[in-house]
Computed example of a mutant assay.
Amino acid sequence: ARDLWSTFRRHPWLAPAMSLTRPQPLPGAMPFSEWVLATLAGQGLDLQTAFTCYLALINYIRGTAVNLETEAEAQAATGLDSEEWMDAHEPELRAVFAAGGFPTLDRLATEGYDFDLDLLFEFGLQRILDGIAVLVATARP
């Protein structure tokens, strides 16, 4: 999973070019698919469940990576990275919060949040893998 994320990091155009609903036969990607399916089936999951886990994992990785190309394009167009863009738009955000109705978001803006796509990816990946581990544990006799 981390290798796929690294590939998407090196080639930001790749994630948007891939399709989950209309997959293309990509011989270079099939060893990973085979490994995941064989591993999950070997742990007691039926093939339908194993493939569903595989699709959820791939969809998460791809879905997070889609932001890479979009961010690169936005940075090229504006000359601002995401942190600089947020800093530039903070007064607008604060004005919305000042109007009321968003106390938790206001608190978050005051405390700050260090957005890092790699850390976000790792956090989500661990939650998915933890969930699959529970599924595997319940599949064993």
Rank of each mutant, 00 (worst) to 15 (best):
G63M: 03
R10V: 02
A137G: 03
I58S: 05
L55M: 01
A72F: 00
G28K: 07
L125M: 01
L80I: 08
E90M: 14
D118P: 03
P103H: 06
A72M: 05
P16Y: 08
G42Q: 02
A50F: 01
G44H: 02
D3S: 13
L119I: 01
L45E: 02
Q24R: 13
E90I: 11
H89N: 15
P31S: 05
G28Y: 07
L37P: 00
L125D: 01
L47W: 06
D87C: 13
D106T: 14
P103N: 06
A88W: 09
L105V: 03
Q75R: 15
V36G: 01
T138F: 04
E73F: 11
P91F: 07
T138E: 12
D118M: 02
F97Q: 12
R107Y: 08
F102M: 14
A1T: 10
L45P: 00
E90G: 08
T52D: 06
P23S: 10
Q24D: 10
V66R: 15
R107W: 10
P91V: 08
L55Q: 04
L68Y: 03
A74W: 03
E90A: 15
F51A: 12
V36F: 05
E71D: 15
V136T: 04
E90F: 12
G112P: 07
Q43F: 01
D116P: 05
P23A: 11
F123K: 09
P16F: 08
V136F: 00
D130F: 04
L80N: 12
D114S: 14
A139G: 07
A29K: 06
L129E: 08
L108I: 13
R127V: 09
S6H: 13
F51Y: 10
A17C: 10
T104A: 13
S6E: 14
G112T: 08
R10Y: 01
L26T: 12
A56F: 01
W5C: 05
E90R: 15
F121A: 05
Q24N: 09
E111H: 11
Q126M: 05
I61F: 02
L125K: 00
F8K: 09
A17T: 09
V134Q: 05
G124A: 01
L119A: 12
G124P: 00
T21W: 11
I128E: 00
P12W: 06
V134M: 03
Q24V: 14
L20W: 08
T21K: 10
D130Q: 08
Q43A: 07
T78W: 10
E73S: 12
Q126K: 10
G28S: 12
D46E: 05
T110R: 13
R140V: 08
